[in-house]
């Protein structure tokens, strides 16, 4: 119970902190709009209409969630290190994974704002018809996707406890994940060797569940796969975090000095 309380309070404070920064807050919402605008233009000029355009809109919105998570998650711990708080976090008795998870969840939450903004942008600027067949399942699937992206970000963040330039890796992953998770491009169009990677990425299943809800298909299988993978990321990330902190204690890489 207390673990959930820590995660909840930390998530709220992190969100507060991020939404006060023009960089994380404003840009986190505006920046994806540039990409979604391009996407909307490409698809409308390609003649996409109705459900096909909605499908692209959904993809463009989830792209923003991953952007705001991947580009900041890997730098999150660098930032803590720079401001001298990483040592304080490690020195606290709460296990580090419980401290980091809410950080990346807050990033995904900012991404969730951009998800809503992108859908509205599509609706009012590009006339996307937001005719969702199963609205409740649509929202549930969106929330699960956002959480799963937050946990994937957690896995990414954990890997940067030790490596000072891991942020570059995180940002390089931004567009490959857009592509491989089938946010915009059907998986069949991609080379066959990418398929197993797609299946291992929770957002692949998340976006599929969101589309299923929009089209009135059964969301449950994809939703379950998405959640299951998210839990697996959480477990792997936690184990990794513990090992990485041990290594950091051995090699003195917690402080910037």
């Amino acid at each position: 119970m207390t673990v959930f309380r820590v995660i909840g309070v930390a998530w709220w404070l992190q969100l507060k902190m991020r939404s006060r920064s023009a960089f994380d807050g404003l840009l986190g919402i505006l920046y994806p709009l540039f990409f979604s605008t391009v996407v909307f233009m490409m698809f409308t000029h390609g003649g996409a209409q109705g459900p096909a355009l909605l499908s692209a809109a959904v993809g463009a919105s989830v792209m923003g969630v991953w952007s705001s998570t991947s580009t900041t998650a890997s730098a999150a711990l660098q930032q803590e290190r720079r401001q001298g708080t990483l040592e304080l976090l490690v020195a606290a008795p709460t296990p580090l994974p419980v401290v980091i998870l809410p950080v990346t969840l807050s990033m995904a939450t900012i991404g969730a704002y951009s998800l809503v903004v992108t859908l509205l942008w599509g609706r009012f600027v590009f006339g996307v018809d937001l005719a969702v067949q199963r609205p409740v399942q649509f929202v549930v699937a969106a929330v699960v996707t956002v959480v799963s992206i937050g946990v994937l970000g957690f896995l990414l963040a954990v890997s940067s406890v030790r490596y000072r330039t891991a942020w570059a890796l995180g940002t390089a992953l931004e567009m490959p994940v857009w592509l491989i998770c089938g946010f915009l491009v059907p998986l069949d169009l991609l080379p066959a060797w990418t398929r197993p990677i797609s299946w291992l990425l929770a957002p692949t299943w998340g976006i599929d569940a969101i589309r299923a809800a929009a089209e009135g298909r059964d969301t449950l299988p994809s939703l379950a796969a998405c959640l299951g993978l998210a839990v697996a990321y959480g477990v792997i990330g936690s184990l990794l975090a513990v090992r990485l902190v041990d290594a950091a204690r051995r090699h003195a890489t917690l402080a910037l000095t």
Partner: peptide, 12 residues
């Protein structure tokens, strides 16, 4: 205050 709240949480 929020700084203290955060660490109060982390220190249980």
């Amino acid at each position: 205050l929020d700084n203290l709240r955060y660490f109060a949480e982390l220190y249980a």
